[in-house]
């Protein structure tokens, strides 16, 4: 009898966590392990056999000028996306907080883009900026800007940055708004009585007080720009023109599934995995403790 009870006691908790563990193992651990293993292999040109080469894939990777460029490009892309998405969200939240009439409607509208799937968001921007059909190239032509992101790498980068940032603004907005609403109203009022203009209140009181949120969002946004922008880039530019918008995740896909360099692609995945781990650690270390003020 005692044994039976004991048995149930172990089984029940196991049973309850099993689905989670199964999901983690099947969709995260196993592929990660595979990627890690794969990154130590080099396939022959016909994909018939593979050879275990230890770190050769990584050595090749870090000697590769194009890969290093991609790294740099990704850094630029992520910073632009994060800064753009966060600063616009911050300003919008600052205004939304002051709005009294119809606040609910504004907020709901501002949150909608978040619900749009990345590929659809990409498609939207592709249509708006299509050099022959889109509305924006048409308008830009009037101020003598010749828009063609299929040929101009800088414009292509601008477009994917805008599309990626646009989608993330809603998320940042929600967090900023919540953070601002948790600042006691009397603190802002005290600043008003002390003579601070709305602008000054925003920069000297509100902004410092939402700094923990800023830090949290910075990590989230960089992770987003690193990984979740794949759909947008795939829909808008396919990494082109001439790799101008190929960021790390896109290169993993391109080298692996298009170029069929499985070992190299896997090595890139492992590098990305490492970056995520570092960022997650940073986030837990600092966000958990909150930014000091």
């Amino acid at each position: 009898m005692l044994k039976r009870v004991h048995f149930i006691k172990i089984m029940l908790p196991l049973l309850l966590v099993a689905p989670q563990i199964a999901v983690t193992i099947i969709f995260f651990m196993w592929p990660a392990g595979q990627a890690l293993y794969q990154s130590f292999l080099i396939e022959d040109a016909f994909g018939l056999s593979s050879e275990f080469v230890w770190f050769e894939n990584f050595e090749l990777l870090f000697d590769d000028e194009i890969y290093l460029q991609t790294f740099w490009r990704t850094a630029v892309f992520s910073s632009l996306v994060a800064v753009l998405a966060m600063s616009i969200a911050l300003v919008l939240a600052g205004f939304a907080e002051r709005v009294i009439k119809g606040a609910g409607a504004y907020r709901t509208l501002l949150i909608w883009p978040y619900a749009v799937a990345p590929v659809l968001a990409g498609a939207l921007w592709v249509f708006m900026f299509n050099p022959t059909l889109g509305i924006f190239p048409f308008l830009l032509e009037k101020i003598n800007i010749d828009w063609n992101h299929y040929l101009n790498g800088g414009q292509a980068m601008g477009l994917v940055v805008a599309a990626a940032a646009w989608k993330q603004i809603a998320y940042n907005f929600l967090f900023y708004l919540a953070a601002m609403q948790s600042i006691p109203k009397s603190v802002i009022e005290a600043a008003a009585i002390d003579g601070a203009s709305p602008m000054r209140r925003f920069w000297t009181i509100t902004f410092p007080l939402v700094s923990p949120t800023t830090f949290f969002l910075l990590v989230i946004n960089i992770v987003y720009a690193f990984f979740d922008t794949f759909g947008i880039i795939h829909a808008v530019t396919q990494g082109g023109p001439a790799n101008a918008t190929t960021i790390l995740v896109y290169k993993v896909y391109n080298d692996g599934f298009v170029g069929l360099d499985l070992g190299g692609s896997a090595a890139q995945s492992v590098v990305l995995m490492f970056i995520v781990i570092v960022m997650t650690v940073v986030q837990f270390r600092y966000v958990e403790k909150k930014v000091e003020y």
Partner: peptide, 12 residues
């Protein structure tokens, strides 16, 4: 100048 019930000091 005003003194608030919750003091409303600037926490940072």
């Amino acid at each position: 100048a005003m003194v608030f019930q919750n003091y409303a000091l600037y926490p940072h």
